[in-house]
Amino acid sequence: MTPSYYLLLSAVLFSLGAVGVLVRRNAVVVFMCVELMLNAVNLSLVTFARINGSLDGQVMAFFVMVVAAAEVVVGLAIIMSIFRTRRSASVDDSNLLKY
């Protein structure tokens, strides 16, 4: 099995994540889709590391995980606070700022 299938898989996962951001309403799910995109990138990083025969890509994947974890902390805090106010986690309800 050539590594390029992993790249393809990663691209598919990334696209799924992007589409998910566009179609899902729940803020938490939207955020999970973003996480899916990040992890799709991790898969390509690791695959490229394998293709290039260097460890850099794998190390980078760790960095990405750490950053993603930090993002979760901040993101969930923000989503929580707006959920407490509006009693709804739908991103379509936050619609006061426009035009």
Binding site: V91, S94, N95, K98
Partner: peptide
């Protein structure tokens, strides 16, 4: 055009994509 700035996050994400 300013009507395109709908206020919906998802439409912003669509325009970015």
């Amino acid at each position: 055009l300013r009507r395109a700035q709908t206020g919906f996050v998802r439409s912003y994400a669509l325009s970015m994509l």
